[in-house]
Simulated assay, not measured.
Amino acid sequence: MPANRNALIRYRILDQCLRNKFRRFELEDLMDACADGLYEYAGIRGGVSKRTIQLDLQMLRSDQLGYNAPIEVYDKKYYRYSDPEYSITNTPLNDTDIDKLHEVVDILRQFSGFSHFHDLSGMVQRLEDKILTHKSENAPIINLEKNIRLKGLEHLDTLYHAIQGKRQLHITYQSFKARKPDSFIFHAFLLKEFRNRWFVLGRKDKKSDNLLLALDRIESLKVSQERRLEFPDLNTANYFDDVVGVTVGKNTPTETIEFKVERKNAPYIETKPIHHSQVVLHKDDEFTYFQIQVQWNYELESVFMSHGPGLIITAPRSRFRKMRRLYRLGYQNYEGE
């Protein structure tokens, strides 16, 4: 791509001049046209140097940007395309362009819950049409984690715009533990995704604690015209910094958790840290020793358990005993079978 927006504007203006069959453009004319265009489209006053235009023409002629424009000089002073049908806007896409467009389309599809991307649907369809004309038998090279059956995604866009517009919400919600739904006013501040499941953070009123709602448990949702309440003490930018997952304890302190990982599995933990605070303490022939600063919660337990017997909590001892109890319960469940 051009180095900057001004260069792109000049390329477009030069293209229009070189395609013009009813006027002859000398170098000075191209300079004036680009100066006028920069003022019109970017508000930039001042002239464009002869050297700049010469470099632009050289760039358009080259294959550096894929244009290979057939620019010729007639009578040693007039510039135009030798092919009257040529335009840089008609430059065909190469295989690399097609591959990149395919990746972009795949990525855009992952955000179908937001209206921003509904608005782009026409563009995405045009990209797909362009790709189909260059269709190959190659398998996809990007596979993002997604769950098309996940409930609650239909609420994403409504929640996003309510947060953006600072509006109250009327929500009917039923948690996994509740016997029946509950309806209440909710003041939302942040959308949070964890392991392909979405949550919204907010409060019911000025006296309530922070509340994290799972979108798949929302039964109905309506945006009010009333302004939401503001809570200066709610720092959404750092709210989840001290946890793995989404469960944040109101008065739960962070702990220094130390654990060791078998040598063969340690690279997985090193390259994909359990928490951003993770550091390596030391290594020996059998284990790599790590430390993190976090609140202990269910999600952290689940992450530790997912690594099986290859990860062992070493400190504090209370957390070592907690994990030992979990493994014993699991063993008893399987032993009964």
Rank of each mutant, 00 (worst) to 15 (best):
R179H: 11
K166E: 14
S306M: 05
K21T: 12
R24C: 11
F304S: 00
D205V: 03
F194I: 03
D182Q: 13
Y334R: 12
W296I: 14
Y86F: 15
G37D: 02
Y239E: 02
L300N: 07
Y334H: 09
K192I: 05
R51F: 06
T133I: 14
T236F: 01
K264C: 12
P2F: 13
Q58D: 11
S87A: 09
L221C: 07
L108Q: 07
L60V: 07
K260C: 10
E128H: 03
I312C: 08
S302D: 15
T236Y: 05
Q164E: 12
D99I: 14
L127M: 15
R109A: 13
I274L: 15
C34S: 05
L14M: 02
E255I: 12
R195G: 10
A42N: 06
R10F: 06
K204I: 08
E40H: 11
Q332L: 11
K204A: 06
Y78F: 15
T271Q: 15
S183G: 07
H155S: 06
L229N: 10
P316I: 02
E28V: 12
H276R: 14
R328I: 09
I44N: 07
N90K: 12
S306E: 03
P70N: 04
K322D: 13
I141E: 14
N238K: 13
S115W: 09
K21G: 09
R61V: 03
I107P: 00
F114S: 07
S87V: 02
F186E: 03
F199Q: 01
F194V: 05
P140F: 00
K272N: 15
G152A: 06
F176C: 09
K222R: 14
F114A: 08
T52F: 05
E193S: 07
